[in-house]
Amino acid sequence: MDGFTLIADPTRRRILDHLRVEECDVGGLIQVLGLPQPLVSKHLRVLRDAGAVTAVVSGRRRVYRLGVDPLPDVLAWMTPYHRMWATRLDRLARALDEEETS
């Protein structure tokens, strides 16, 4: 599954957003999301199969965290836009600075 399809689902985006901040087991995600365990597990399996998250066994728990490169196709698509806007905003900042010093 490509990254765009992966993040098209709001539940998967919420899981990724939470795991960006801290790693978590299924029980913790159930509490944060307020969703039933089978649904959370289903989304975690999809995310894990796509490489967006990894799981580490810790005792009787599986602790999930973001993968090393969770959404490479999304990042590759966004990078040119980010560069374009960063360049334009840098030019705007310079123009404003020059206007202030004039």
Rank of each mutant, 00 (worst) to 15 (best):
M1W: 15
M1F: 12
D2Y: 11
T5R: 12
T5Y: 13
L6F: 11
I7Q: 03
I7A: 06
I7S: 05
D9A: 04
D9G: 02
D9F: 05
T11M: 00
R12D: 00
R12S: 00
R12I: 02
R14H: 02
I15G: 00
D17C: 07
H18D: 00
L19C: 12
V21S: 07
V21T: 06
E23K: 10
C24Y: 14
D25H: 15
G27I: 11
G28E: 06
I30H: 04
I30F: 07
I30N: 09
V32P: 04
L33N: 05
L33R: 12
G34E: 01
L35R: 09
Q37V: 11
P38Y: 10
P38D: 07
L39A: 09
V40F: 13
V40H: 05
K42M: 08
K42S: 05
H43F: 04
H43D: 06
L44W: 12
R45S: 11
R45T: 15
L47R: 13
A50C: 15
A52Y: 11
A52D: 10
V53N: 09
V53W: 15
A55V: 13
A55R: 09
A55W: 09
G59R: 08
G59H: 14
R62N: 11
R65H: 07
R65D: 00
V68Q: 14
V68I: 15
D69I: 08
D69E: 12
P70E: 08
P72A: 01
V74P: 00
L75Y: 05
P80M: 08
P80I: 03
P80F: 10
Y81Q: 01
R83V: 09
W85I: 05
T87R: 14
T87Y: 13
L89Y: 14
D90T: 09
A93C: 03
R94D: 01
L96Y: 04
L96A: 02
D97Q: 01
D97T: 01
